[in-house]
Design a binder for these strands. Sequence first.
DNA 1: TAGCTGACGCAAA
DNA 2: ATTTGCGCCAGCT
Length: 97
Amino acid sequence: MRKNFTKKVHGYVKNIPAGEVRSYGEVAKACGSAGGARAVGFIMANNFNKEIPCHRVVRADGSLGQYNRGGPEAKQAKLEKEGIPFSTAGVIQISHG
DNA sequence: TAGCTGACGCAAA
DNA sequence: ATTTGCGCCAGCT
């Protein structure tokens, strides 16, 4: 049941503490699907729950990626408010929890 | 049921 | 170091 994957992703993302960021690949892997990075992104795009801090999920390169709430700019703004340091490329460092 | 798309990731040039 | 191409999984039409 693929839906299970989605539920796991939601739970994991909700488990991401403020001030920390996770890469799509990390989330996918933690949910049981290593190469399911794209799937995670798709889930986030279809996820509009404020309970799910999808803005804390960034690309493996540290780049922001996308955001269904106003684009990378809004995403970065939220992350900066969380206390996440940023660089010209994007996130300085991703916590691997 | 089959095919296409998508907020990614890695390898090669 | 930067750019381009292919592969990955899950969801939606």
